[in-house]
């Protein structure tokens, strides 16, 4: 701001800066020590830990900004506010511009912004998309991701306790619930999301009808479930415990009721659960369409048939419609 000072005036900027530095440091330290560790989404997965850290870093930068402006506004109100609304038509300081103030403001905001963008980009890339849905062809993948996707399509078991492989899980959004398929365990489908601890999970999220969003809150995973799209998100589980899954994209009337609870269990418990469920559900699984990245009702939607997303057109529209308009 303008820095010319009349001789007997107090140095406003120095006062404000002093207050700002002191209060900011105190606020930042208090936040970092007492609040930061409890900020959602917690510590249940690698992405949760990282995303919590990013949030805390942002807040530590944001607090001084907020406090700086507030102190300035408060100071202006107290010191420069006229008490009685006296109409004094000629004002004080006539500074229209101040090159130093303007330049430093622009430089400081630009630097902060570029640092934030750089840090954010680094976090996204280093953490395999930070638990966000990366679409059908993820660019930032953990090692072993490709192998897991191949195993999922082939239906071969690639994960066992201690194997350190990526476990593929399919999340299928539908109005108004999520179901989960475990392609490497025979492709059984359940309404329970059980995951092994200390394992990199590849969520393959898709939808049967409208857009949903798979939000495993404590896992810090969020990926939109689009029909016809396989939206992949990664995270690595770190702690055992329960978590909540909610739909976070408006999907119709019962959107508010579209939630369930999941569990991260020990690797051996998971293995037990998966193999027993696979065996128990074997008869039902046979009736399901074979595992695929996406599922679609057939052309008429009436026969209830599904086909795997493949390399050819599932039905011949030329055959259906001929070269003419269908009778309507």
């Amino acid at each position: 701001m303008a820095t010319e000072n009349a001789q007997n005036e107090p140095n406003h900027l120095r006062r404000m800066t002093t207050a700002w530095v002191i209060i900011s440091v105190i606020a930042d330290v208090l936040f970092w020590v007492f609040v930061g560790p409890h900020v959602p989404p917690g510590h249940m997965t690698e992405t949760a830990i990282n995303n919590q850290r990013t949030f805390n870093v942002l807040l530590v930068i944001a607090l001084p900004v907020l406090i700086g402006v507030w102190i300035y506004l408060g100071y202006a109100i107290v010191v420069w506010g006229s008490k009685r609304n006296s109409v004094d038509s000629i004002g004080g300081e006539s500074a229209r511009t101040n090159r130093k103030a303007q330049t430093s403001w622009i430089v400081v905001t630009s630097v902060v912004v570029l640092i934030l963008a750089g840090y954010g980009s680094y976090a996204v890339i280093a953490e395999h998309g930070s638990g966000g849905g990366e679409g059908p062809n993820p660019v930032w993948t953990p090692s072993g991701a490709a192998q897991a996707q191949t195993a999922a399509l082939a239906g071969t078991q690639n994960w066992s306790p201690g194997s350190k492989n990526v476990l593929p899980v399919q999340v299928i959004g539908q109005q108004w619930k999520f179901t989960y398929r475990y392609p490497t365990f025979g492709g059984f489908e359940t309404t329970q999301l059980i995951l092994p601890v200390n394992t990199e999970i590849a969520f393959n999220v898709t939808s049967l009808d409208v857009i949903h969003s798979f939000w495993a809150y404590q896992l810090s995973v969020k990926a939109d479930a689009n029909p016809q799209v396989n939206d992949v998100a990664y995270t690595e589980t770190k702690q055992m415990g329960n978590f909540v899954v909610r739909c976070s994209e408006l999907c119709g009337i019962w959107h508010g009721s579209m939630y369930n609870y999941g569990k991260v269990v020990s690797q051996s418990d998971f293995m037990n659960w998966a193999t027993t469920t696979e065996a128990a559900n074997a008869a039902n699984t046979k009736l399901l369409p074979p595992f695929a990245w996406t599922y679609v009702p057939d052309a008429n939607g009436a026969s209830g048939g599904y086909y795997p997303d493949g390399k050819q057109t599932p039905y011949s529209t030329v055959e259906l419609y001929g070269s003419k308009t269908p009778a309507s």
Partner: peptide, 23 residues
């Protein structure tokens, strides 16, 4: 947020050593 921040520069600069009437 840089050009958006300009409005704060403008506002804070205008308030500096002003005679504020709180209408």
């Amino acid at each position: 947020s840089i050009p958006t921040g300009f409005i704060f520069l403008v506002g804070m600069g205008t308030l500096y050593k002003a005679k504020i009437r709180f209408e």
